[in-house]
Write a protein that binds this DNA or RNA. Structure first.
Length: 589
DNA sequence: CTAGGGTTAG
């Protein structure tokens, strides 16, 4: 370092105690300073007050790039954060110089450290000069930085604040924010943001609409998804193949009667609108039909796609293989796998997991194990699902020693057990009535940093109910809420079935009351459980009331319902009318 | 920045 800059350093340090905004009494020659800073040997300066030096750089209108370098260096070097005012000044300088990449990088740090609140930056930015539209861009980039740093709540807060301040945001930040909100399942927020975007006349594009539609579909709100499709048309944006794929997937995943009919009619609608279905469209439909147990329809769609020259992928085959296994058509599933290999489509780990699961369900444990051992020969890495699937197979077969051995094997392979792994084992221990081993496992999973989930509780509750301890099981509902877990319909159904088995119908009905209080509607299974419970206890009148309630709620009886009715009720004098209501002849006549 | 496949509770 030259003597010249040493003198400068002394002078810089002489005004340590003065306030940041006070101009230094004895200013240097501007060229002297720029010569010093252009070298950017900050560490040689041994600054006593990093803040003041920054102020001087601003005062001398140093190059934005130089200020930025010093800004970042000094924050690191002195482990401090610059004031919001200096941040905003620098943002403005960089914006004027159109150095957006640098703003992004600075915002990244700004957001990561969370040293300044949204309110302070919104307040300060307009006070630090800069054009209004430049400030909008900065706020827009701030939003994006929050999203990228997984601080969604702050992104949403900034989005809301931008309204009253009049900052105009763009799809560059809003789309990724919407997308993250959808991934987090925050559909209510998505809806609000979307409406507000429309109100503020932010120029929504195809991706904005598709993202919101996807959000509603994933939340099962298909009517609202449809409303957004109307919105987009009114906005002058036409639905694309992605829009249709999203909607079709929404219907496929929904548990509703006739959903596949609707999904299929959407396919027809898109063709009529001259939007070409692609491989993904067909994969979604095929998977939907398979999950619906309708492999015949899935195969028809499979042929149709090939007829259009669209190539089935590993994903397509995986869906079909899984579908065939689900309806017990094991040989055909295997043939399809062979056909796929013949077409040089390499089975993925998902294919193997599907096959292992399929064989396990058919109690073909030997075949499942052979496949498991074959995976490594094909250079595929075993994942946690592979292990869980086979561990579950062992547990269901009552081979707990083998299951535990497989757990050790997964640790050797550096595959980390997850909560599902524990759930499989718990199910196994409960099945053989080993409450002690299960209890130990519940402690162990927490020690390993895992948390019981909904399935853990449903398994535990189911085990208690089977032991005739439904009262103990009900108490677990409160424990769930304490842990922030929300019981699902299955939870209540298990409990009701438990009380029914114990012959305590009053308690079973109380569980249903509680379920409705907790905001869950009865489903077909709920009704079936109660109908069966009343039948088993000889109270056919009450069973009939349950059936009528079910029909009035618009719930469609399934095969199980009819099995119960046929076995228990129709033999005992109840006859159905045209709407499915049952009437007791002996009472009516 | 949008859309597709595999495990556990029944």
């Amino acid at each position: 370092m030259c003597i010249h800059s040493l003198t400068t350093q002394t002078r810089l340090c002489s005004s340590t105690n003065s306030s940041l905004t006070t101009p230094i009494s004895d200013p240097f020659d501007k060229s002297q300073v720029s010569d010093l800073i252009s070298k950017q040997h900050w560490s040689d300066l041994k600054l006593a007050n990093p803040f003041q030096f920054l102020q001087q750089l601003f005062d001398y209108e140093a190059d934005s790039e130089v200020i930025l370098t010093y800004f970042k260096w000094s924050q690191r070097e002195f482990q401090v954060s610059h004031s919001i005012q200096h941040y905003c000044k620098l943002f403005n300088l960089l914006a004027n110089a159109k150095k957006y990449a640098q703003i992004r990088s600075l915002l990244h740090e700004f957001v990561k450290n969370e040293t300044h609140s949204n309110s302070s930056i919104f307040h300060m930015l307009p006070l630090c000069g800069g054009q209004f539209c430049a400030n909008s861009i900065i706020i827009d980039m701030l939003l994006l930085a929050y999203v990228k740093n997984l601080k969604l709540h702050l992104a949403v807060e900034a989005f809301e604040r931008a309204g009253p301040y009049g900052f105009k945001l763009s799809v560059l930040s809003c789309n990724p924010m919407l997308s993250s909100l959808v991934k987090e399942g925050k559909i209510a927020v998505v809806e609000n943001v979307y409406k507000e975007m429309i109100r503020r006349r932010i120029e929504l594009d195809l991706i904005s609409f598709n993202t919101v539609i996807n959000g509603f579909c994933k939340a099962g709100k298909l009517r609202k998804a449809g409303d957004v499709v109307e919105d987009m048309k009114a906005w002058g944006v036409l639905p694309s193949v992605v829009t249709y794929n999203t909607l079709i997937d929404g219907y496929c995943k929904k548990s509703r009667v006739g959903k596949m009919y609707k999904a299929n009619s959407l396919l027809k609608e898109m063709v009529a609108n001259e939007i070409c279905p692609n491989e993904i469209t067909y994969n979604i439909l095929i998977d939907g039909f398979c999950k619906d147990g309708n492999v015949v329809a899935a195969m028809r769609v499979f042929k149709e796609m090939q007829g259009l020259g669209l190539n089935p992928s590993v994903v397509t085959y995986n869906s079909l293989i899984s579908g065939l296994f689900n309806v017990g058509r094991v040989e055909e599933a295997c043939r399809l796998r062979d056909k796929m290999v013949g077409l040089h489509l390499n089975p993925s780990i998902v294919t193997y997991n599907t096959l292992i699961h399929g064989f396990s369900k058919k109690k073909m444990l030997k075949e499942a194990i052979e496949l498991f051992e074959d995976i490594s020969n094909h250079g595929l890495p075993l994942n946690v699902l592979t292990f869980n699937t086979l561990i579950d197979a062992y547990c269901k077969a009552g081979k707990m020693e083998e299951a535990v051995a497989l757990c050790d094997a997964m640790l050797d392979r550096m595959v980390c057990p997850n909560i599902s792994t524990y759930n499989c084992l718990l199910g196994g221990y409960y099945k053989e009535g080993n409450m002690e081993a299960a209890g130990k496992l519940l402690d162990e999973l927490e020690k390993n940093g895992l948390r019981a989930d909904l399935a853990t509780y449903n398994i535990h509750i189911g085990a208690l109910c089977k032991q005739g301890e439904s009262r103990k099981a009900v108490k677990l509902l409160d424990e769930m809420f304490e842990k922030g877990l929300v019981p699902n319909q299955l939870t209540y159904n298990i409990l009701m079935a438990g009380y029914c088995r114990e012959g305590n119908l009053r308690a079973a009905l109380n569980v249903r009351k509680r379920m409705e209080k907790d905001g869950k509607q009865s489903n077909v299974v709920t009704c079936n459980v109660l109908i069966k419970g009343f039948c088993a206890n000889g109270n056919l009148e009450k069973a009939n009331t349950c059936l009528n309630e079910m029909l009035e709620k618009g719930l469609v009886p399934n095969r199980t319902t009819y099995d119960i009715i046929r076995e228990e009720m129709m033999d005992k004098g109840f006859v159905p009318d045209i709407d499915g209501h049952l009437y007791n002849d002996s009472i009516n006549s």
